[in-house]
Design a protein around this nucleic acid. Structure first.
Lengths: 311, 311
DNA sequence: CGCGGCACTGCTCATATGAGCATCAGAGCA
DNA sequence: TGCTCTGATGCTCATATGAGCAGTGCCGCG
């Protein structure tokens, strides 16, 4: 009987029959230590596969690699479910879990909006914090076709955290620079922006630069404008601002007309939690992570692998 | 954080990060014992799945149940491969392994023939035994369309076991009873049959009672005859003899014309190794096992499950 | 209000396990 | 043949683990 087969036998007796290595040794006519060594071999060679099957399980090895590779403060990676839908839910759940156990508890939390963050908000348990101030970090009131999502999301997070919300009463992108400057000068808006800049933690996601983008759906941009941005190298948007693969603003003029927290503030934040899920967002995720826009990454395994597979 | 989620975290740290339960306790702010308990829970609830992936792995739990349920001396169950072909190979490999490690080494081994046993013979390692006498237990020389398989199989087993083979020089089934009696009376045949009856171990498989049966393919029976047998309740054949679900001979007249070891000899044998694989053979496997035709069963997991699922 | 039952906790102690080390057998070579 | 090197073996000992037990707090019930 060759060594590999013996490994298999030992592994079977140990894991399926839960015998002790001593018993296994006696049974197979080998010493206790040989049994132990064969067992380690079996684990190393992948003959024994140990898997943690649970929607809220994580991939700690990938997390460690991400932290090291990109200098992140933290990373959370959840396994992809069998059928690819449900990823968003899992990642959102992980983000909710992360927020809940985040220490120190953030006093002021800046949030952006979008489908991903809505899912996160819905999964936050009641009482996830006590007395958190939530502030919107980019505009989006009223023009949204599904009205109120942006506001609802932020206020849900605040309510469940036993705190209050400050909404940013402004469109995300304005048509004219002068209007943008005017609205920014307005005291109510200026105050919100100041609060946003002073938050000690941020929670945001990112959009892909295509026609299904939330900014297009909400009417802030035309499909053609997005196509033009893509031609200029845009791969997606973060808090309403389009960036290229290096994390740079693609169209400074457009960016000037965009109301909300600047990317430089995000880059210097102590805690910037980036939540991203799904095959379509691999590229924008890479841009965000590589250009230092976040300190914490929460994502799915397939995205994590894509990030780590880089040479 | 609820208990289930905590279990998941503990399992991750224990199995993915191989930390000790002590470390995990410190990390999650629980006692070492609580960590241990959560780990057992995780295993019990199936959150942790430990699998042994190897073509030669076995299913020891099923084996134990089979032994207990059917009073077998031994049972070997191999996992079904992903794609259903390859089962026969795995089971044959298991049978070869079993024979190789069988103690006491059989001095005289009675073998039947068929595709399954051919596969077994091919997988026996050179030198699997030293000086084994192999004897055919049912007829089949010459009429076989793939000539020599039956003989080759037996002599391969003998050669690799450093022994010699005794072939049964007779058709499996004769057209007339008188011919059968005459050939049985012939000294060369009678001697072989006597040797067959005196073997201390048997190795055999079974055929399903349909038109693709080896007995039909070899020309011993017509398709119509098999259909007629099926109408009478036959579910398959063992060493050339057709039996019903209870293990009884279906057609005594036909059985009288069949040359080879009787089933009653098989039933009283100290070691009768039955090798069977594949979905189509579940019924015949059940008949053989339930009617005590074998003392050792070697099969695949799906067949084992079918046998055990009985009420 | 007091009591028994029950689940859960953290302990003690026996046992199982892995790391590190001395020993040994066999291959390769002078 | 005798030598050295290498890889495997079985040991000692420190550590990790699980079984069983006593203490604790909570619940429902009289």
């Amino acid at each position: 009987m060759d060594d590999e087969l013996l490994s298999v036998r030992v592994a079977e007796l140990y894991y399926d029959e839960n015998k002790t290595q001593d018993e296994i040794g006696a049974l197979l006519g080998i010493s206790r230590w040989k049994a132990g060594r064969l067992l380690s071999q079996a684990r190393e060679n992948g003959i024994v596969r140990i898997e943690i099957v649970h929607p809220r399980a994580r991939r700690l090895t990938a997390e460690r690699e991400l932290r090291e590779r990109f200098g992140l403060a933290d990373a959370v990676v959840v396994p992809n479910p069998e059928n690819s839908d449900g990823v968003l839910g899992r990642v959102a759940q992980a983000a909710a879990d992360y927020l809940t156990s985040l220490r120190p508890v953030p006093r002021m939390l800046g949030v952006s909006w979008g489908r991903t963050l809505t899912e996160v908000a819905e999964r936050l348990p009641d009482g996830w914090a006590t007395g958190v101030s939530v502030v919107q970090i980019n505009g989006g009131v009223s023009l949204n076709r599904r009205p109120g999502t942006a506001a609802t999301l932020a206020s849900t997070i605040a309510q469940r955290g036993r705190g209050h919300v400050t909404l940013l009463p402004s469109p995300a992108i304005l048509e004219r620079l002068s209007t943008k400057q005017a609205i920014e000068a307005d005291r109510t808006v200026a105050e919100v922006l100041a609060r946003a800049a002073s938050a000690n933690a941020y929670l945001f996601s990112a959009g892909v630069g295509d026609e299904q983008s939330a900014l297009v759906e909400s009417g802030y941009l035309q499909a053609e404008e997005v196509q033009e941005l893509a031609r200029k190298g845009a791969i997606g948007d973060v808090v309403g601002r389009y960036i290229d693969a290096n994390g740079n603003i693609v169209d400074p003029a457009l960016d000037e007309r965009t109301v909300g927290l600047g990317l430089e503030r995000l880059r210097e934040a102590a805690t910037a939690i980036f939540v991203v899920a799904g095959e379509t967002k691999h590229d924008i995720a890479r841009a965000v992570v590589m250009s230092g826009l976040c300190t914490v990454l929460i994502t799915d395994e397939s995205t994590a692998r894509a990030l780590l597979e880089e040479i």
